[in-house]
Amino acid sequence: MKRDEIILGGFGGQGIILAGYIMGKGASLFDKKHATHIQDYGPEARGGACRTEVVISDSRISYPYIDNPSILAVMSQEAYTKYSPRMRQDTVLLIDENLVKPKRRKHNRLFAIPATRIAQELGRTAVANVVMLGFITAVTKVVSVEAMKQAVLESVPKGTEELNMKAFDRGYSYGLEKLKTAEGEGK
């Protein structure tokens, strides 16, 4: 039984929960796997710590929580500090390098992307989460690129599809490049 466990962390307003939702949707509706998306939020509408968990499995998911993620993607220093201790040896760590400075020198499998800066280049900081999704897709292949793209298209507000596709593609090709150059920067 294959079970992928993904934690996405950041702060409220970055679209972290939406990113988790899109990932779960891609895996379940288009890759036809089982997927459970859990959101966790506090009273703040903006700025508070925010986390979402996605479990993707070949079989039915009874326990929906994650102790030690196989994939950790963080878009805030606070999220990094909070969740990186829960990493396993083989956890793939993905960070927005504009927002997160890893404390430990050596992460076995660290992949960094300037997601927020790329989003700014595209004209909308709001799509940083989709840049990150493209990056995660390229690096981890946890959801197929076709499924993820379709999920993005069907989840973002009408009229923003093109922008979001651009964002996804930028993140995705950045990820492919990273894979080519190294099996992870930590090595």
Binding site: I17, L18, Y41, E44
Partner: peptide
Amino acid sequence: SKEEATVVGSAP
């Protein structure tokens, strides 16, 4: 057609 985005949390 497929579902649009899930509404994310609201303040308690």
